[in-house]
Design a protein around this nucleic acid. Structure first.
Lengths: 183, 183
DNA sequence: CGAAATCTTTGACAATTGTCAAAAAAATCA
DNA sequence: TGATTTTTTTGACAATTGTCAAAGATTTCG
């Protein structure tokens, strides 16, 4: 398995326990893992490939989150609250993934409370990453945000449409195209 | 006690256990709870008053987080990683607060692993709030972000300097002043 | 109270980013 | 391959937001 968001945090026996409860699938590019307007029950662990969370604002398609192999993706606005999600989750490449319902994960955690700690550590990391992304918007210009992404996740830029990257960075596709020309 | 980020999630006995380990202080406006460049070890629970997390970018003071009574504040970039923080945490009003070191909190959690679940729930909520804030920057104009803050945290706008609110919303003070005139 | 300090507003102008439309380039697939 | 679809770039222009400087307003505190 290849889960860089977890490997250094979560002990092997927990990975084993959770892994035993996970289902596995290979799915093609453009497949919708989750559709906006429905309640999202599953958490996806990308073994290979790439996915994005997105939604529409005033007719425009906006990418909220991007994940590649080793990373986790789900509709965060639904999985915890069990409200209908604003987001859809779409595969950007043919992908191989493991998944588990949040319900099942919670059952495992109830039976093995010693594992809660590791879920906490993963959440802490996710929270910190989110805080960094907020900072980006507070201090950085469009060009700085792009340069930063280039530095931190270079592969992503080669594999994802310009339009998706632009909306993920909070700018239009045209702006990103011009930024790239100058850089 | 008054902890609206916790009351509806965390059971009373845990609040009691943690509360027993917390220290209590009253401190005046402008007091620095934490200073940038040092490692932040404590988590603060505001009983009354108001605080902000901020830092400097190119000489400009930028507010990253705002908390009022019932909310939690700390230097998130340091408390978990134990790295030196980029942020300072400052009181905006005379405040009464409880605090505990993250270290002590972890010890409590080790001794009472049944409580990990609630820390996870709090973190999930914090993460979700962070995700919402990112969305704001992705889809909303300066005016929309201000209107939204006005709707979700109206008191805050009456109690916090325009400049702090402006940087918190990712715009200049002048822009916010003009937005407010029109609204 | 009244002077000093801090905070907010305003104006003129500049820079950044967005919009709309169309052309160019690249990817897809029958 | 070659036609079709999708993606990216470009241009002209508009809207939004930022910068700098200064004037008003408000708060603080001796």
């Amino acid at each position: 398995m290849n889960f860089n968001q977890l490997d250094d945090i979560v002990p092997l026996d927990l990975i084993g326990t959770i892994f035993g409860a996970m289902k596995h699938k290979k799915l093609p590019k453009t497949h919708l893992l989750h559709e906006a307007g429905t309640i999202c029950k599953d958490i996806y662990f990308l073994q290979s490939g790439m996915a994005r969370t997105y939604f529409y604002k005033e007719g425009k398609d906006i990418t909220v989150h991007l994940a590649s192999e080793g990373e986790i993706i789900t509709a965060v606005d639904s999985i915890i609250s069990l409200k209908k999600s604003r987001y859809s989750v779409e595969l950007l490449e043919d992908s191989e993934l493991f998944y588990i319902s949040y319900q099942d994960l919670q059952t495992i955690l109830s039976n093995h409370p010693q594992y809660e700690k590791y879920v906490r550590l993963v959440l802490e990391r996710m929270y910190t990453e989110g805080a960094d992304r907020i900072e980006e918007f507070l201090f950085f210009t469009a060009k700085e945000r792009y340069d930063n992404l280039l530095k931190t996740r270079p592969k992503l830029i080669q594999r994802v449409n310009l339009g998706h990257i632009a909306s993920y960075l909070g700018m239009t596709q045209e702006t990103l195209s011009r930024i790239r020309r100058t850089a």
